[in-house]
Nucleic acid binder design. Structure first.
Length: 276
DNA sequence: TTCCAGGCTATGT
DNA sequence: ACATAGCATGGA
C-alpha cells in the first residue's frame, strides 16, 4: 500500500484498505479510543498513535513512526487479499462492512495477557481491566505503557485480584511468573505449531486464546479463532451442521487457508456491527 | 432474576 | 479422545 513518512507523520493514501474504525473496532485490540475531537487513538506496547482523516489520506501521528508502519501492517496489500477471499460468496457480502480492516502486529506479551483476560468476558470490561493493569506501566506523556514482564511478575496475587478480573486473576499471576525467564523473541522464530504448543501449556490459555495470540501477537494469518460471535456467524450464515468450536475452526481454516485470520476479522466485525 | 460476554481448568466417561 | 460443571464480574 502507498504511504509516506515525514516528520514522524505517516500518510496513508488508500482509504479503501485502511479505516481506523474498522481496524480498531474489529476486536483485535483493546487499548484504543476516540478523542474529544473525534479522532481515534491506539496504544501498543510503549507507543501511542492518533489517526486523523484528511481529504486524500489518513495521517498517523505518533511518537514512533517506524513502529506503527509495522504495527498497521502497511507493507501488505489488503485489496489483493480481499480479492482472493471474495471467491467465497458468503464472505464477499460481509467484507464491505469492514473493508478497511488490517491485522495489527501487536506485542506478544501484551496479547498474551490481554487475551487471557478476554475469556468468557465482554469487550468493555476487558478494556477496563487492561487499563487498570497498565497503571503499573511506565508513564509516558498522557498514558501508561503496557507493563513489562518483570513489572508484572513482581506483583503479588492481590494486585491481580484488585483488577476485577474475576477468576482469571490466578491465571495472570501464574503466567506472569512462568514467562519471566522466557524470551519471546526466541519463541517467535519457532514454527506456528511449536508456538501454539508453547502457548497452550501456559495457564489460562486454551485453543481460542492461543489462536488469537498467534494471529495478533505473532502475525500467523492462517489462524481462525472461534468464539461465541464466530459460532453465531457460522450457524447463521455458513452451515446448519452441528460442529464443536475446534471443528468450526478447522472448517474455516481449510476454506480460507493463509488468509484465515483476516477472513475471521471480517466475519467478527460484521456479526458485531449489525447488533450495535 | 436470569442470561451472556473474544473460554479455560478440572474432572469425569 | 470427547463431554460438561463450575467459574468472577458486570451490564442488559
Amino acid at each position: 500500500m502507498i504511504y509516506t513518512i515525514e516528520n514522524n507523520i505517516i500518510k496513508v493514501f488508500d482509504k479503501t484498505q485502511f479505516n481506523p474504525k474498522h481496524i480498531l473496532e474489529c476486536g483485535q485490540v483493546f487499548r484504543f479510543g476516540i478523542n474529544d475531537d473525534g479522532n481515534y487513538y491506539v496504544i501498543s506496547d510503549r507507543y501511542k498513535a492518533t489517526i486523523i482523516e484528511k481529504d486524500d489520506c489518513y495521517e498517523i501521528i505518533s511518537n514512533n513512526a517506524s513502529y506503527f508502519v509495522n504495527y498497521f501492517d502497511l507493507d501488505t496489500d489488503y485489496n489483493e487479499i480481499k480479492k482472493t477471499l471474495s471467491k467465497n460468496k458468503i464472505l464477499s457480502t460481509m467484507i464491505p462492512y469492514g473493508y478497511g480492516i488490517r491485522i495489527l502486529n501487536g506485542d506478544p506479551y501484551e496479547m498474551i495477557f490481554s487475551y487471557i483476560i478476554s475469556q468468557n468476558n465482554n469487550i468493555k470490561r476487558i478494556q477496563k481491566i487492561i487499563e487498570k493493569l497498565c497503571q503499573i506501566g511506565d508513564e509516558i506523556d498522557d498514558y501508561h505503557a503496557f507493563p513489562t514482564i518483570s513489572e508484572l511478575s513482581n506483583q503479588p496475587l492481590s494486585f491481580f485480584e484488585s483488577l476485577g478480573a474475576g477468576y482469571r486473576d490466578k491465571f495472570l499471576k501464574k503466567t506472569a511468573d512462568d514467562l519471566l525467564h522466557v524470551n519471546l523473541k526466541e519463541i517467535e522464530s519457532l514454527s506456528t505449531d511449536e508456538i501454539y504448543d508453547f502457548l497452550i501449556h501456559l495457564t489460562g490459555i486454551g485453543p481460542k486464546v492461543a489462536s488469537c495470540i498467534l494471529l495478533f501477537g505473532f502475525h500467523k494469518m492462517d489462524k481462525f479463532p472461534v468464539d461465541t460471535w464466530i459460532e453465531q456467524v457460522y450457524f447463521n450464515h455458513f452451515s446448519s451442521e452441528k460442529r464443536t468450536r475446534p471443528a468450526i475452526q478447522k472448517y474455516f481454516e481449510s476454506e480460507f487457508k493463509q488468509y484465515s485470520g483476516i477472513a475471521q476479522q471480517y466475519l467478527f466485525y460484521y456479526e458485531r456491527e449489525k447488533k450495535d
